Simulated assay, not measured.
Amino acid sequence: MKAIQIRETGGPEVLQLVDLPIPVPGPGQVLIRVESVGMNFIEIYFRKGQYKATLPMTPGSEAAGTVEECGPGVNGCGFKPGDTVAAVGVLGSYAEYALVPAAQLIKVPDGVTPEQAAAAMLQGMTAHYLAYSTWPLKSGETCLIHAGAGGVGLLLTQMAAKIGARVITTVSTEEKAELSREAGASDVIVYSQQDFVAEVKRLTNNKGVDVVYDSVGKTTFDGSLNCLRPRGLMALFGGSSGAVPPFDLIQLSGKGSLFLTRPTLWHYISTRDELEKRAGDVLNWVKSGDLKLRMEHMYPLTEAGQAQSDMENRRTTGKILLEP
């Protein structure tokens, strides 16, 4: 099978196309024929060496496709050859075939394509836990979402608006601002032209927002804290601009007894029931049309390096997909 492999950390050029044997499913594993791969920033972190991994490795953490073969002990899990399925959190999806533990696999509802499932699973469930668990948004509350035209940003904006929250977003261009408004943002700040802290203060009459959802990290961290109302919460769920430097927690008290969390999806889908609930909500909202996906950026597997470069340099909006 064709697969992308990393033999050394570095730039996009280290993503090499190779021929590998089709893996054989072991106990509790399912072999899927990958039809669509969802690209995420975590793969860039692995490529650069920010996240440690044993090399060589095939990157990838999100895929949808068809069950090809079930390993021993899978029959009772409800999967069979021919089923359309999706999974997150499993390394090795930048390939034509991938092994997935049955416990991490989700059946895709009829009416949802593999491309939609690959575009929705990781980012959709991330938006879900942020809006419904990390800070359970309520109607009338106000949130600030950075990277509002990104994959998670657009989905989180839709969920927050559906709840009835006021959504303020930051984006880099006027074109992305329009996408953010279409997703339901009440106010959009073009940070390349405006000071987002000053704008948030103005938009909230100096009260601040209830919660900040920040996937940018280094360049927005201090400003995000300054946007919060007393006892508000900052959810730092990514670091596309780099890691946040060491931080003195006493600042949280000085800024209003603030809360700060660094959540990850895996702790919000740690049980089978929670995984099925979040994935079920997201995929069924996609099926019903209540959750709109942007999937205009599709690259062949052979152009994985270009796809990562475009994502890293913010040349895309919505979800990036690889097609094996």
Rank of each mutant, 00 (worst) to 15 (best):
F196L: 08
V197P: 01
E178V: 15
S224K: 03
L233K: 13
V209F: 01
T220N: 03
A235W: 08
N205I: 07
Y213E: 01
A235Y: 09
Y213P: 02
G217K: 11
L179K: 01
G232E: 10
S241K: 06
K218T: 00
E182F: 07
S215A: 15
T220E: 02
S186P: 03
A183P: 03
K218D: 07
M234T: 00
F221P: 09
S241I: 03
G217F: 09
R181W: 10
G223H: 03
D210M: 05
T173W: 12
R181L: 09
G239V: 02
S241T: 06
E174D: 15
G208I: 14
L228M: 05
L179F: 03
G184V: 08
G232S: 14
D187R: 00
V209C: 01
C227W: 04
V200F: 08
G217W: 07
S215G: 15
G223D: 00
M234S: 02
S186A: 12
V190L: 04
P230I: 11
V200Q: 08
K207R: 15
S180H: 00
Y213R: 03
R229F: 04
L236F: 04
V216A: 12
E178P: 09
V209G: 02
L233D: 05
D187H: 10
S215Q: 11
A185H: 06
V188H: 08
K207F: 10
S241E: 06
F196P: 09
G242H: 13
D222L: 10
K207S: 06
V197C: 06
Q194Y: 04
K207P: 02
A235L: 06
G217Q: 07
S215I: 07
D210F: 10
V188W: 10
K176I: 04
S240Q: 13
K207E: 15
L203V: 07
L225E: 11
V212I: 10
G208W: 09
V200L: 11
T220C: 04
S186Y: 09
V212H: 12
G232R: 13
P230T: 14
L225C: 14
R202E: 08
E178R: 14
G238N: 05
K201Q: 02
Q194E: 15
A198G: 13
P230S: 14
I189Q: 11
S241G: 06
D187V: 01
I189R: 07
T219Y: 10
A183K: 08
K218V: 01
G239N: 14
F237S: 06
D195K: 02
E175Y: 00
E175C: 03
S192D: 12
F196S: 10
V188G: 12
